[in-house]
Design a protein around this nucleic acid. Structure first.
Length: 178
DNA sequence: GACTCGATCGGCT
DNA sequence: GCCGATCGAGTCT
């Protein structure tokens, strides 16, 4: 849930990826890296970790576990529950978004919720950006597969740590089968 | 101090 | 399906 100027923008998360900390080569905390950029990923669970990538995109993670674990979940896609028009405007879309276009992809999700570095390290338990428990999802509704864009990570690149609602239309590309 | 490349997206072919 | 954009963190010298 994103609160922006009194308006509520609500996304239901439909796709995420897990990053397991120092032993996960695809993780920014691989090998115990403690640099300024990843500092917030070492915070305790419930904090946001926002980073800038490719010179023009932001990605939003939810930090997990105890302080010092360095584990997080990347939010890859969501479907609009409320505030879709505002989110489309934030995305700069002049037309009604097609399925998957509004927040289907980590950088799109950040753009739709106006997330940038100012929210890096912020608490997600309260405040203008926060997580709320949603409907429970049965195990057989969840498709899983290898993560995206981490081919450099060797063996860890093949770990099935990407999770999405099976057959959901808002998930990011490349679409997870199932 | 300089160089390399990335947890991406959108436009063009 | 392929490729360029764009910049800062990380790494090496």
């Amino acid at each position: 849930m994103r609160e922006l100027g009194g308006e509520r923008l609500i996304l239901r998360l439909v796709e995420v990826e897990a990053y397991l900390g120092p032993e996960d080569r695809a993780s920014h905390t691989w090998g115990g890296r403690r640099t300024a950029r990843v500092a917030s990923m070492w915070l305790g669970g419930g904090h946001a970790y926002v980073y800038f990538v490719y010179g023009l995109h932001y990605c939003l993670n939810v930090v997990c576990g105890e302080p010092g674990e360095g584990t997080a979940v990347l939010l890859r896609a969501g479907e609009a529950v409320a505030g879709a028009a505002r989110m489309a405007a934030l995305r700069g879309l002049a037309h009604a978004p097609r399925p998957g276009e509004l927040a289907g992809g980590p950088a799109r999700l950040c753009a739709a919720l106006a997330v940038d570095r100012r929210l890096d390290g912020a608490s997600l338990l309260a405040g203008e950006l926060h997580l709320a428990a949603g409907e429970p999802v049965a195990d057989d509704e969840v498709a899983r597969g290898p993560r995206v864009g981490v081919a450099y990570a060797g063996k860890a690149a093949r770990w099935p740590l990407r999770f999405a609602l099976a057959g959901h239309r808002e998930t990011s590309r490349p679409r997870l089968g199932g």
